[in-house]
């Protein structure tokens, strides 16, 4: 998709937004909105963006700062999940965002949409993994909130405000993320759990217990075939030191017949099971409207995406 705008710097982006925010809305319906695109694999999620030109963040791509022993990383918003994964894997680390969807998606879009994945409960949701952002809000302010440290309560939390706002408050250009060491032992198992009530409650007890896996996903036969699992199954990921995983594996064995798979099965499953974006029924109460009004009063950023009142 060709971009109407591809600012090379955050200052240029701010100037672009500011010029639009300052201009009066034209009666002829000139397109002044900006449709923000990470990898442009994004969807309209039920609310087509109105009257917008295409804004590419392609210039904000790549690893900008990474000191592995800090377990934090700073990346451009258009960095893909695959790039983030490759850079951190080289040091035995990962950013466990691992969202539903494929790894060509961008880190910026993952944070902007707060998309979770199968490991979010155990390893962190987007709001827990993002430590800071650089972004340009709908008035053209360049905001640098949070930072590269893992604990930070300095000032009001703009990072949390823009996380999950679907680009309707600010365009995210750079992010600081929390990393974790990859588990020493990382095992992916397909467990043929019988569909009985007893088996289901045993599985539930296991996932709530001390040997809890990193994630569990129920996979139907058609998707199971794609990862080489025999029939409908539960995909289970265990992580930890060798002794812990050994014990957890024994526990999994009592839940049903077990097939060991490659960790790559998760990429396939994350892509195949990605739910349709749940963008209907966005909560537009007084606070939400005020938030939109304070950060993008002229409705420059992704206008209409959230079905917001103009």
């Amino acid at each position: 998709m060709s971009a109407d705008h591809r600012p090379a710097t955050v200052e240029a982006l701010a100037a672009l937004v500011r010029a639009r925010a300052g201009a009066p809305a034209s009666a002829s319906g000139a397109r002044r909105g900006l449709r923000i695109a990470g990898a442009a694999t994004w969807m309209d999620a039920g609310h087509p963006v109105r009257e917008a030109e295409h804004l590419s963040l392609g210039a904000f791509r790549g690893i900008e700062a990474y000191t592995p022993a800090d377990l934090t990383i700073s990346v451009g918003a258009a960095t893909t999940l695959a790039e983030l994964d490759a850079a951190t894997a080289a040091h035995g680390q990962w950013c466990p965002l691992l969202p539903w969807g494929d790894d060509h998606g961008t880190v910026g879009a993952t944070i902007a949409t707060a998309t979770t994945g199968p490991f979010a409960e155990r390893l962190g949701r987007p709001r827990q993994l993002v430590l800071g952002v650089e972004c340009v809000d709908g008035t053209g302010r360049i905001v640098r909130a949070g930072g590269r440290v893992v604990k930070n309560v300095a000032g009001f939390d703009l990072t949390r405000a823009v996380t999950g706002a679907w680009g309707t408050l600010a365009v995210i250009t750079r992010l600081h993320l929390r990393l974790r060491a990859r588990p020493a032992v990382d095992v992916t198992l397909a467990v043929a759990c019988p569909a009985t009530e007893a088996a289901t409650s045993r599985l539930a007890a296991f996932t709530r217990g001390p040997l809890a896996p990193l994630g569990v996903v129920a996979v139907e036969a058609a998707d199971a075939a794609a990862i080489g699992a025999p029939g409908a199954t539960h995909l289970v990921r265990l992580g930890g030191n060798a002794a812990l995983v050994r014990e957890a594996r024994t526990a999994v064995g009592s839940l049903g017949a077990v097939t060991e798979l490659e960790a790559a099965a998760w990429s396939t499953i994350r892509a195949r099971l990605a739910p349709a974006p749940r963008l209907t029924g966005w909560r537009w109460d007084a606070l939400a409207s005020r938030l939109r009004d304070r950060f993008d009063p002229a409705r420059i950023l992704n206008p209409g995406l959230l079905g917001d009142p103009t």
Partner: peptide, 8 residues
């Protein structure tokens, strides 16, 4: 779905 007003 909505803005993370709780987080803010």
């Amino acid at each position: 779905p909505g803005y993370d007003l709780l987080g803010a």
